[in-house]
Design a protein around this nucleic acid. Sequence first.
DNA 1: GACCTGACCAATT
DNA 2: TAATTGGCCAGGT
Length: 114
Amino acid sequence: MKDLNSPERPMNSYERIYAVVMQIPYGKVATYGQVAALAGNPGLARVVGYALHVNPDPDHIPCYRVVNREGRPSSAFAFGGENRQIALLEAEGVEFDERGFVDMERFQWSKRVF
DNA sequence: GACCTGACCAATT
DNA sequence: TAATTGGCCAGGT
């Protein structure tokens, strides 16, 4: 293994992703790209989705707080129904549009809240 | 080891 | 906002 030579080891990518998702505060949402960047893997948004796909700890990993760049849950959010996620976020104070779009400017994590 | 798919993103139209 | 195209990486076959 030549991992010790690498400046960054994408080995703990999953662990970091889960950690970041768990750190999402109440009433806020984060995008896959944002989580990926915070996890130290900018550009690995796809891997983030995969990491949540396996979701080894749904008890501490609120996947519903993770949305795509449009501020909308993905179609594969079959952990209870896409509508279910919207309801959960609304219960936390997140406002949703009729189309299922959330106001990123106000509810996106780590973006300044007014 | 190659090929295809995927809970994505950015840019362009 | 939506549709299309190209690119990113990991995992399954």
